[in-house]
Amino acid sequence: MWSFFHKLGSPPWLYSIAGTILRWLLPITLVVLVAGAVWGLLYTPPDFRQGNSYRIMYIHVPTAVVALAGYYVMAIAGAISLIWRMKMADVAMRAAAPIGAMLTFLALVTGAIWGKPTWGTWWEWDARITSMLVLFFLYLGVMVLYDAYDNKEAAGRACAVLSLVGTVNIPIIYKSVDWWYSLHQPASIKFTGESTIDSSMLYPLLLMIVAFYALYTCCLLMNMRTELLRREARTGWVRRLIVEEGKG
């Protein structure tokens, strides 16, 4: 058990194990992603109320789900690096921020595109969209703060504190935005109460959520490998790696 944690703290081990995982996970992820997209796009029946535009759900919901989960991944990594001074957690936190920001962005854009045929507007100040936008700004804040520090060790710790503060705030923000929207909700638009979904639509959706989690893992590992190389440039194992790559 403990030896696993010791290994987890060792950059060369992490670098090589991440490479091995990626060699398997990346092709599988791509296949599942394409399969899920094709299934959702072409092989599911249309929604009886929204018609075909609901097919955007197969990318909108997974990106939103993983984007939110990604914030917690980042915050937990930040907490670990802050409490136990574990460098690899710091690397993971740094790697998680841009992926999460990108997924949040995609969720917002696909939500806007979905909104046009369903609600007739590109942007609706709906509770969930608004909270997603706030989440996007939280991600950007972490990225900008990291960039602003010259001392990257301090940058990691500052971002860890910020992402923890964000974690405490996210439930409060979600609840208050939800409440705010119910206060201002115009009578003509109402989406609550239709959470039943037919299994012919549910399975591709679940597949896509799994695919996006796998995609998140892949991107996280890839970003971590790059970050490790950058940080450990002066060490022996990186030198040996370069010599090997040069031969191969």
């Binding site: 939280l138 964000g166 705030n169 923000i173 935005v177």
Partner: peptide, 22 residues
């Protein structure tokens, strides 16, 4: 979080404003 940074002003707004929402 921004006390040691020279360019604080705009940055602090970015960090803090989302947390002001509730």
């Amino acid at each position: 979080l921004t006390v040691s940074l020279r360019r604080g002003g705009m940055l602090i707004a970015l960090l803090v404003l989302p947390l002001y929402v509730p």
